[in-house]
Amino acid sequence: MRSTELGQSGVRVTELAFGAAALGNLFTPVGDDEAAAAVDAAWKAGIRYFDTAPHYGLGLSERRLGEALAQRPRAEFTVSTKVGRLLEPLAEPSGDDLAQGFAVPATHRRVWDFSADGVLRSIEASLRRLGLDAVDIVYVHDPDDHLDQALGEAYPALERLRSEGVVGAIGAGMNQSAALTRFVRETDIDAVLLAGRYTLLDQTALTDLLPAAAERGVSVVVGGVFNSGLLADPRPGATYDYTTAPTTLVERALALKAATERHGVPLRAAALRFPFGHPSVASVLTGARSPEEVRDTVEQLRRPVPDAVWDDLRAEGLPSMNTSLPVSTPIGERTQPKESS
């Protein structure tokens, strides 16, 4: 599987990244064996970039990912984790963590902390859980309500760690483009992780983040390409950004599905391929909780999407007429994107 360097960091990521939130029991439990098998399936498919965070299952995702990668050659894979939420043990644990989206016992509480000390403590704890002595990529995680501290304290701390070799590349991860654009313009980050804002249904990032990233040489990792479900299976009651999708968006997604299926292409395949139309996009990150889900995603990404599909989408105004669209070349043989007219 093709890999790309993030910015000028020297850290490389494969075009498909394994999102390990599900290994932290996102919404429903995943067994230890199934979690390990999902990572194994990703490895066999050529995926070498794995993303996690302390937030995911109160550290369970990091522990499981570290265990699954422990016997792999360290030089052959890239791991990213995140800072911004410290995990503090509860004196009297009770209940579960489902209010935060994870089916795990509520053994810890999350404490927002984007201070320099918080960054150091977070990374030290993550390294223990992952079983690593250095982490390849660290993202400032969801600093929406803490932007000044994240820019003024967390980023400089990460910059020092990068200069010391503890961190290979640094970035910020959010589900909005405006704040990420500030990181691109005001810091020397290597990458941004953007969730849900550069998809077939939402190209908000075209107005600010993607032009800034191209100008500054910052790489973009795109998550949430299915907008939490609607682009995977458009129907009434489907979810969009983790809430029930409004009727207008369902109708729009169904129009996209009709356009791709006229050419025998599943909507999921087009949704996975779409972000690669922009030259700043280095990787698409998708979650998986089983080997079957991994294999299906890889199959969809490798499926050819003829230029006629993108032509039909343009003709319907879906996606934006100002969007660069991928060429039909299969992943692993990427060439320059095809410009919309």
Rank of each mutant, 00 (worst) to 15 (best):
V218Q: 01
L193A: 07
A169S: 01
A212Y: 06
L194E: 07
G224T: 10
R185V: 12
L180W: 00
G196D: 08
A205S: 06
Q176M: 11
A172I: 13
A212T: 11
L180Q: 01
V222P: 12
T199D: 05
G217N: 05
V220S: 13
G171W: 08
Y198L: 02
V167E: 03
F226W: 14
I170P: 06
A213D: 11
L206H: 12
A212H: 09
F226L: 07
E186M: 00
G168D: 03
L193N: 13
S177N: 12
F226Y: 15
D188A: 14
L201A: 08
L194A: 03
L200T: 15
V222F: 09
F226D: 11
E186L: 01
S177H: 14
G223V: 02
A178F: 04
A169Y: 05
A212M: 12
L209T: 08
V184N: 00
A169C: 01
A179G: 13
A212F: 09
R182K: 15
V220R: 09
L206I: 10
P211E: 02
T204M: 10
F183D: 05
T204K: 08
T207E: 15
A191Y: 04
M174D: 09
G171N: 07
T181E: 05
D188P: 07
T199L: 01
G171A: 04
A214L: 13
R182P: 09
D190G: 05
R197I: 05
A195T: 14
Q203T: 15
L180F: 02
V222A: 10
A212K: 11
R182Q: 13
N175G: 03
A205G: 02
V184W: 00
G196C: 03
A214Y: 06
M174Y: 05
I189R: 02
T207D: 15
